[in-house]
Design a protein around this nucleic acid. Structure first.
Lengths: 192, 192
DNA sequence: CATTTCATTGAATCAATATTCAATGATTAC
DNA sequence: GTAATCATTGAATATTGATTCAATGAAATG
């Protein structure tokens, strides 16, 4: 393995460790030294890989937007599927992923958290570039015509739906009593 | 007005200011100096009223448990009301409150946030003393027998319901696009 | 092998912010 | 009206945690 590959691997290890800690303890409460200790490596060395704590977060958010965009594509690539099944199917997949690849899950939670005020501006800005609220709103609008979703402002319904998902996923990352819920429960928010 | 009363009033002002900031910016990102500036008063003076930033949080959480317990009593005091109406009624009231008395709302959000790992231990411990999850689970169990709630582990349904509420309320405190949702949307999570 | 490059460390440094403190002015009690 | 008490301030101080740096050793290069 070349040095370059090794370095890349180490970078990934740091990113994944940071992701876990950011979600578990929150960004401000995660100390660089916590991340370094968990990797493990010395605190100083971490700065050999990333310029700052904020860069670390920004990189993660960039990865997150990539991933989220891919998910969006997959959704578009399966036309003919009713909108409600698409949403519960998506949630089902997402929740199923949680078992083996918790990082996908954590990434999703981080993407939600990073939108809040007080989070570093750059990361925040990037996270807003994927707008699942609007795309889901479109989906809802279409579904309303077919009568599979309840009446109401699609944007509001979409916001309500995703905030609920966010709340549930945060609880899952933090509370071991919380089992994976049936996606159908959550999609019910949108049902007539 | 006696000095004692004045002091008490000042304490309340500090608490309410801190509550707003803790919810808006998060506990770690809220500096004592931010709170003092917002009250307004000098940073040093704040320590004349509260021993530490953590004490401030603890006091708020204590207030929160009081309030939440009262709500629980009111619920018990209205027997005969179907369980689903009780929940949507409660949410409706809570959301309505948000308009005039945002602090009630913020308090609710804070009580949820303070349960997360990384928050100061004492506050965390106190917040766990009110267990709306379990009481709602009982409510759900009863409702299931009458067929007004869907099948499934009551504890899981309750957790899912409250995490969704938490997510939605946090979004409301932070995103001005987010309007008050119809409580019925959220209670649908529990509907058969 | 000699040289260069890179990974790594632990110990500074620097900055932010919680907390303390001595001094000052205002209010109350006598 | 004088003394005691309390509110208030702004300037120290202490602490925490991010970031930098000089030194060391290991791997690659020639």
């Amino acid at each position: 393995m070349t040095r370059k590959e090794q370095k890349e691997e180490r970078r990934q290890a740091i990113l994944m460790t940071a992701l876990t800690l950011f979600v578990e303890k929150g960004f401000p409460d995660t100390k660089i030294s916590d991340i370094a200790a968990a990797v493990p490596m010395s605190t100083g060395l971490l700065f050999h890989y990333f310029d700052s704590k904020e860069t670390l977060l920004t990189e993660l958010v960039k990865m997150g937007t990539e991933g989220t965009k891919k998910v969006g594509m997959t959704a578009k690539a399966s036309p003919g599927v009713p909108a409600d099944q698409m949403l519960s199917g998506f949630l089902g997949q997402l929740f199923a992923y949680a078992k083996d690849r918790p990082w996908v899950f954590n990434m999703f939670v981080l993407m939600g958290q990073v939108r809040r005020p007080g989070m570093p501006e750059e990361a925040r800005r990037i996270s807003f570039s994927v707008d699942s609220i609007s795309s889901t709103a479109k989906l809802i609008k279409a579904g309303q015509k077919e009568g599979i979703f309840r009446k109401g402002d699609p944007k509001q319904l979409s916001l309500c739906f995703w905030s609920a998902v966010q709340g549930i996923m945060e609880e899952m990352t933090v509370n071991e009593d919380m089992k994976i819920p049936d996606p159908e429960w959550i999609v019910s928010i949108l049902r007539p």
